[in-house]
Design a protein around this nucleic acid. Sequence first.
DNA 1: CAGATACCGAACGCTGCGTTCGATAGAATG
DNA 2: CATTCTATCGAACGCAGCGTTCGGTATCTG
Lengths: 205, 205
Amino acid sequence: MDRRQRRTRQAIYRAFEELVADNHYASITVAQIIECAGIGRSTFYAHFATKDALLDQMCAEMFSHVFEGVETDPHTHERLQEPTLEGMLTHLLCHLRDNHAGICGKLLAEGEPHFTGHFCELLAAFFDPRLPERSNWVPRDLMRSLLVSGFCQSVAWWYGQRFATSPDELAHWYVRAMGWQTKGARTPQGAADGDRPPCGGGGLG
Amino acid sequence: MDRRQRRTRQAIYRAFEELVADNHYASITVAQIIECAGIGRSTFYAHFATKDALLDQMCAEMFSHVFEGVETDPHTHERLQEPTLEGMLTHLLCHLRDNHAGICGKLLAEGEPHFTGHFCELLAAFFDPRLPERSNWVPRDLMRSLLVSGFCQSVAWWYGQRFATSPDELAHWYVRAMGWQTKGARTPQGAADGDRPPCGGGGLG
DNA sequence: CAGATACCGAACGCTGCGTTCGATAGAATG
DNA sequence: CATTCTATCGAACGCAGCGTTCGGTATCTG
């Protein structure tokens, strides 16, 4: 790809992220993006048909890497023998925070439907083969969408806290809050679990 | 209030509901509402400052009645001695289905942020004093927003099924899926509960 | 009937969108 | 270096939707 193309593309992405961080997505105009990116109007449209298309492509790039190595330990990157759901979610959260924290958290927190839709689709595919046993007593697709939306909500909440919580703690809270039965590991008598003090709400803003 | 005012106001509401049922909320224009309601442009703006304002006012009216009698039996309307959460949710779902099914379900299913925001606020206030015990181990506001978004999701799912499920069944599934510990009632050996067959996904469309 | 009030609807200015097109600058090739 | 291709620029255009204005008409109230 031409160097010029890469330059402008990057400039657009950068500007977009910056604007998303400070504005409601819906209120961002193409003129703003152009201005902020320092490019010409027709150039923008040479790359993206529309603001939503820009978001779509950005999602595609973001999400293409999101589940890479999700079955390895997020710290040591060793492949886990029997990866737990909580472990994989932790890895996923690490990835999100380290690479896409702002835009991802912000758009989920805003409830921006376009982005949320993409993200949920991705999560649904991930959760589907891993649904807990109790889904036999609840319609499978309902169960799935509850778990998915819960995870989105957790990330949105995390963003609201400016990522003050550690990924593994958040993953643990999520799993616990959704009433997920972790098999064996993380039982209440384990040090990693039962000793966590009751937490006082965690409100920041 | 002047009869003329009531007439136009009703016409607007009617048109709005009709349009919401058939279109993405965001794509509905004021011109469409006017056309569909059969009123003049300036008349619309004499009643509502904007399309979103219309939605807001509609929400306010809808929600002002939503929790009325929520602690009574939805069928007999007898006041319950010790209303269970599941029972109250059932009542709420009955109310939603019988009065606001289309618009409420549709907007939640679309993920329309404005409406969803209002609805979540309402639910948050309802759930807050009723959070389960495990919220001591999970930040209270996180727990609350998980339960709230889960309930929204359930209604959206319900809408997707065209309300094929009965309110009490949906309430039961929700409570169960969210891992809620119902105190005493509805234990697995009870006829009302343990005998429900595993359900096969419930997909309609 | 008289006065007030609500509705009508054409017209206006504004903002944002997506497109067009000739001119310029940068990259690639021989 | 000369040539050719391609990306960018930016002004201008037409379009759609918004919210407002205002003179005229219908409807309510007393």
